[in-house]
Simulated assay, not measured.
Amino acid sequence: MDDLSSKYLTQMIERDHTYSVLELAGHLPYTVMDVISEANRLGYSFDNLMQDPNRVMIVKE
């Protein structure tokens, strides 16, 4: 994921409180798996990760 998209992803999570990976992927030119990978790299945790990838939620600790 490019730096600008990564910053936008962080902004959406931190400021806009958007936690659905599917919703985040809809705002970016990346797949759900790309968003999961980048959010993981940024240190976020997930809920429902082993179930349906489209229902994965980012968990802020």
Rank of each mutant, 00 (worst) to 15 (best):
M1N: 11
M1G: 08
D2Q: 10
D2A: 14
D2Y: 11
D3T: 15
D3E: 15
D3L: 15
L4W: 12
L4Q: 13
L4T: 15
S5Q: 14
S6I: 13
S6H: 10
S6F: 05
S6M: 06
K7F: 01
K7Y: 06
Y8E: 14
L9K: 01
L9M: 00
L9G: 00
L9I: 02
L9W: 00
T10H: 00
T10W: 00
Q11D: 11
Q11W: 01
Q11C: 02
Q11K: 08
M12Q: 08
M12G: 03
I13E: 08
I13Q: 04
E14H: 06
E14R: 05
R15C: 13
R15S: 09
D16H: 10
D16K: 10
H17C: 14
H17A: 14
H17K: 08
T18R: 11
Y19T: 15
Y19V: 14
S20E: 08
S20Y: 11
V21K: 07
V21F: 06
V21P: 09
L22S: 05
L22F: 14
E23T: 10
L24Q: 04
L24Y: 02
L24I: 11
A25K: 03
A25R: 09
A25H: 03
A25Q: 00
A25E: 06
A25D: 08
G26R: 04
G26L: 08
L28C: 04
L28P: 09
Y30W: 14
Y30H: 09
Y30R: 11
T31F: 07
T31R: 09
V32Y: 03
V32I: 15
V32K: 07
M33I: 14
M33P: 01
D34G: 03
D34L: 12
D34W: 04
D34Q: 11
D34A: 07
V35N: 02
V35E: 12
I36R: 01
E38G: 01
A39L: 06
N40V: 00
R41F: 10
R41C: 05
R41Y: 07
L42S: 06
L42I: 07
G43Q: 05
Y44M: 03
S45K: 08
S45Y: 03
D47W: 11
N48L: 05
L49V: 08
L49N: 03
L49P: 03
M50C: 13
Q51A: 13
Q51K: 14
D52Q: 15
P53M: 10
P53D: 04
P53W: 02
P53N: 10
P53E: 01
N54Q: 01
R55K: 13
R55H: 02
V56H: 04
V56E: 07
V56P: 04
M57W: 04
M57L: 15
M57Y: 12
M57K: 10
M57C: 11
V59Q: 04
V59P: 10
K60Y: 11
K60V: 14
K60G: 09
K60N: 10
E61G: 12
E61N: 07
E61Q: 13
E61S: 07
